[in-house]
Design a protein around this nucleic acid. Structure first.
Lengths: 150, 150
DNA sequence: CTGGTTTAAGAACGTTCGTTCCTATACCGT
DNA sequence: ACGGTATAGGAACGAACGTTCTTAAACCAG
């Protein structure tokens, strides 16, 4: 059935998600993605169709993985400490943050995924949507290198 | 004294800030900036040095204008309603949000300005840094078209 | 009016972008 | 062993990018 792949699609998507967590969509080039995933350009386009296709795959992977995992930690936290738990694991939520602030407005499909991710977090916070917002805001602060002074 | 300018530098900076509030740095082209500011390419480079120079000028303008204004509204709000006030005027804080999430990590000077803006907001919230975080988080939600369901 | 200086206007620069194409290679079922 | 098929490996594409250069125009001081 043809020459076998030398890359794992899941690993490639995960590597792309890691890259997209640190830079904007337009700030991340296909060359960057080729280098960090190790997937050849042709194979990348064959598999994901476009840079945007890979971005969407990576975002979905991020939500189904990192975001869902953090949501689990939040749900398991004793009441009143959920936000702290979110922050502790929240270092892995950078991609969602970037997708929400930078890409959602320009891409409806991204906006839909962001909305889904926020649903997941809201559920974990028992529908306390302010808690989700607070967690995201604190995440921004930590990213901007201005963490809380406790 | 040479040929007179046909553009107002302050107006150009404000127009650039409006553009940068909606798209990432790399997602905003110099052509876009030339079109929206009405300033010729050559004059733009003569005045601001580079695209990044204009970005920094616009960010400082945003902080000294919009962010400071919102901070004033927060300070003037009755206790307990400060966050609501921040949200009401917060529609104009998109540039700060984008700078913090998308650009600060890649540009130290941007990070310094973001830090300054957070200081301004923290002061307005009487050093309640969680309130600043909550306001930013709620702003993300409203941007992602998922405002609170009150 | 003239010379000097600054901007307007736009062409042009080399580079990088996202994407496509071509060919060699490695596996499959028969 | 062989034909079919899917990938690896790069070269190549036109378009767009940020930036610079050149020339014409508009002002001021003398």
């Amino acid at each position: 059935m043809g020459r076998p792949r030398t890359f794992d699609e899941g690993q490639a998507v995960a590597a792309a998600a890691e890259l997209f967590a640190g830079r904007s969509f337009d700030g991340t080039s296909v060359d960057d993605l080729v280098t960090c995933t190790g997937v050849h350009r042709g194979s990348l386009y064959k598999t994901f169709g476009s840079k945007r296709g890979l971005y969407l795959s990576a975002l979905r992977h991020h939500i189904d993985g990192d975001v869902t995992r953090v949501a689990g930690e939040i749900s398991a936290a004793p009441p009143g400490q959920a936000v702290e738990r979110a922050l502790a694991g929240g270092a892995g939520l950078g991609f969602l943050l970037l997708a929400a602030t930078e890409r959602a407005a320009a891409d409806d499909e991204v906006a839909a995924e962001v909305s889904r991710a926020l649903d997941v977090l809201d559920q974990a916070f028992q529908k306390d949507e302010q808690a989700t917002a607070l967690a995201l805001g604190l995440l921004i602060r930590s990213r901007a290198d201005r963490p809380l002074t406790p």
